[in-house]
Design a protein around this nucleic acid. Structure first.
Length: 479
RNA sequence: GCCCUCAUGGUCAAGCGGUUAAGACGUCGCCCUCUCACGGCGGAAUCUAGGGUUCGAUUCCCUAUGGGGGUACCA
């Protein structure tokens, strides 16, 4: 039998990491088993619906590299794939379930339900309408009384199933309420819509969060009442923001698109979230999508929740950046480099190579390149380096030496500048390091720079370098 | 309250009756070094508690504690 899994997000805002991970696992599992991965939009909650959220689901899946075989825009014969477009179905199936003895009409009003609450404010339906006679139901229906359709949970049984990750889950039917399947407005509750849709779409493996772990026995009873084959279940522990709070849509940073905007690579984010709650047999961490499909296995899925750690995701992103070829990195870094240098004619390729080992996420680039456009008076204390025996006075001569020898230099590249400065240092009796150090600070006006003196000189170009050296020399003299 | 479920360093985690309890992030120290990175080396840091079972429990069972979820005409 072909494996069919589905991802069923609600379009209620952006897609956070936890949601995406659920979709990712469903995708990995389907691909690994040469099965089908289906996208279904669960938009029955009109009140929480957010404009444009459906498009965002498409966009997110696409940039994350998760492709689906069937979905609203990709009919596979099991459509429609948007719940609001399936509305007619549910009432029909609910009525059929009544006929099959798995559900019943209920005419209880809000007040009566309200009065059922116990001291904890929890109410359990007392099955008041469960045994209404056929005639009475027909009569009240004909009279136009408002009604809901409730699940008729069998009494005195234990509903069990074997979850693929958590093992056997069993719940006593006494603990299962006769819940509403079809609301008084004729629309289905999630519980019911899900069962009907999953069955009709031929879903073989239901993959979703643990919030459904303990209600799954209840859903299984519906499958049973219909005489439908139950699917397999794979419940996934939640991703937490900290020890006690789940990641929520309000925790803005958990938004996939925000991470991309912050300069994370989609594949790095996807790789990281795959690792939250799953560990491959060989403990690998950096994996391509194909490698994940290959390595994915249920036994490696964790049973406990895990805390989202952006720190580690940063590191992983840095690994991806460092593993890129110079050209690839240049391409992704370019927008950020341009942001940093504006219209100035610096060599962007050069700058990119400076940045590649120095950033974990692309958004760090502008700050690290700030020295290119921001130069002027700076603190002379930066010229002090005890270990190397550099102080303000040594720095003045060092900077002058550098300026003198570089002024007449023809070829402005790493090799020539290096040779030139080395020679200048030798002739003057200063140590190479002393000149380099002073020159680097004089060129940038910064204590911390993304590279050494030579690299800074190359990045700045000849005329700008000489201008800055002269400026710093004067500044030191005056100090 | 009741039901389901989880519990290894700060974090992600391996482990599945006998281990010096892996690895990674972070952190600290050292090396490299003109600063910062990169790279290399090294350190500190973990089995929630109490009972069982067993020759032997991190591992199996029970209980407690703590966390998460459910208990809706939300999903």
């Amino acid at each position: 039998m072909t494996v069919r899994t589905r991802f069923a997000p609600s379009p209620t805002g952006f897609m956070h990491i936890g949601n995406l991970r659920t979709g990712l696992y469903a995708y990995l599992f389907a691909r690994q088993n040469k099965g089908c991965f289906i996208l279904r939009i669960e938009d029955t909650d009109q009140e929480r619906k957010v404009e444009g959220a459906v498009d965002m689901v498409y966009r997110t899946l696409e940039t994350a590299g998760i492709s689906y075989d069937e979905g609203p825009d990709k009919d596979g014969g099991y459509g429609p794939y948007v719940q609001t477009e399936r509305m007619g179905l549910y009432k029909q199936y609910a009525q059929r379930l009544v006929e099959l003895g798995g559900a019943y009409y209920c005419f209880c009003d809000k007040e009566r339900l309200e009065s059922l609450k116990d001291e904890n404010g929890v109410h359990t339906y007392d099955k008041h309408c469960r045994d209404l006679s056929k005639e009475e139901v027909a009569r009240r229906l004909a009279a136009g009384e408002p009604y809901v359709i409730r699940q008729k949970v069998p009494e005195g049984v234990t509903s069990e199933y074997d979850d693929l990750v958590f093992g056997r889950i069993s719940v006593d039917s006494a603990d299962i309420e006769d819940g509403v399947l079809l609301k008084s407005d004729g629309l289905p509750t999630y519980n019911f819509a899900n069962v009907v849709d999953d069955h009709l779409m031929g879903i073989t493996h239901v993959i979703r969060g643990t919030e459904y772990l303990s209600s799954t026995p209840k859903y299984n009873l519906i499958y049973d009442a219909f005489g439908w084959e139950r699917p397999q279940y794979m419940h996934l522990p939640p991703i937490m923001k900290d020890a006690t709070r789940k990641l929520s849509k309000r925790f803005g940073d958990a938004n996939f698109e925000d991470f991309i905007a912050k300069g994370y690579l989609p594949q790095a984010v996807v790789n990281y979230i795959a690792l939250l709650g799953w560990c491959p047999k060989d403990n690998r961490e950096k994996m391509t999508m194909d490698e994940m499909i290959e390595a994915f296995d249920i036994s490696g899925i964790s049973h406990s929740s895990s805390i989202f750690d952006e720190n580690k995701m940063r590191w992983l992103n840095g690994e991806y950046l460092k593993a890129m070829s110079a050209e690839e990195f240049y391409e992704v870094a370019l927008p950020w480099i341009e942001k940093a240098i504006g219209d100035n004619g610096f060599d962007k390729k050069e700058l990119a190579s400076l940045m590649q080992t120095r950033v974990d996420i692309l958004s760090e680039i502008p700050q690290k390149l700030a020295f290119l456009c921001d130069f002027g008076e700076h603190d002379v204390n930066m010229y002090t380096h005890q270990k190397m025996k550099v102080d303000k006075d040594v720095a003045v001569s060092a900077v002058r030496i550098a300026r003198d020898c570089l002024a007449s230099l023809g070829e402005w590249d790493e090799e020539h500048i290096k040779e030139c400065v080395k020679q200048g240092a030798e002739n003057s009796g200063l140590k190479g390091g002393q000149v380099m150090f002073s020159m680097r600070v004089a060129l940038t006006g910064a204590a911390v720079t993304p590279g050494g003196a030579i690299e800074m000189a190359v990045a700045l170009g000849k005329s700008e370098s000489l201008r800055r050296l002269a400026f710093s020399e004067q500044m030191l003299l005056k100090a």
